[in-house]
């Protein structure tokens, strides 16, 4: 299937969701002629029109763009997701030290290069942001920096 058609179908689905969840949006007391519902539905309408146009008349596919390997994309997405989910429970330093290993390896590092990157980044940015700049980062399960 042409990617533009797929995009068009997705756009229609998004518009349908916006309509489904937006149709009931009404203010209990209306002070103004245009309520909270009109604008989202207007946007949904234009999204639907775009979707239909893409379905009927796909634009030229973007040939310049080479897709990377699906495995690498999936691995990077999964690592990022795991990192963000465990960011709070594991604490900043531990989660950074762990998950920067696979992320660095996806980009060509050996495992120990990734480990060094993760530990150095974790400690350095914890000290810089948490201690110097007062950005509160999650502490580790042991209550301190780790």
């Amino acid at each position: 299937m042409n990617t533009d058609r797929l995009l068009g179908a997705t756009a229609l689905a998004v518009a349908a969701l916006m309509l489904a969840f937006g149709y009931g949006l009404q203010a209990p007391f209306a002070y103004e002629p245009v309520g909270p519902r009109a604008f989202p539905l207007l946007a949904a309408g234009v999204i639907a029109i775009c979707g239909i146009m893409l379905l009927l008349k796909p634009e030229e596919p973007d040939q310049a763009h080479k897709a990377g390997s699906g495995m690498a994309i999936a691995a990077l997405s999964a690592s990022l997701l795991a990192y963000t989910v465990l960011f709070q429970p594991l604490g900043f330093v531990i989660s950074t030290a762990i998950f920067m290993v696979p992320i660095a390896m996806i980009f060509g590092a050996k495992w120990w290069q990734g480990a060094v990157t993760g530990v150095v980044l974790g400690l350095a940015s914890y000290l810089l942001f948490d201690r110097v700049l007062d950005v509160v980062l999650p502490v580790g399960p042991f209550g301190g920096i780790i």
Binding site: Y83, T96, A104, M105, A109, Q113, L121, V136
Partner: peptide, 28 residues
């Protein structure tokens, strides 16, 4: 090398997003 640059971007991004409301929701 990219394997230094990318983790650096990830960490700065995560810290940045987390600094707003400190929720896992925003990170995910």
């Amino acid at each position: 090398p990219a394997w230094v640059l990318v983790p650096f971007i990830v960490v700065v991004s995560a810290i940045g997003v987390y600094s707003g409301k400190s929720t896992t929701f925003d990170l995910v």
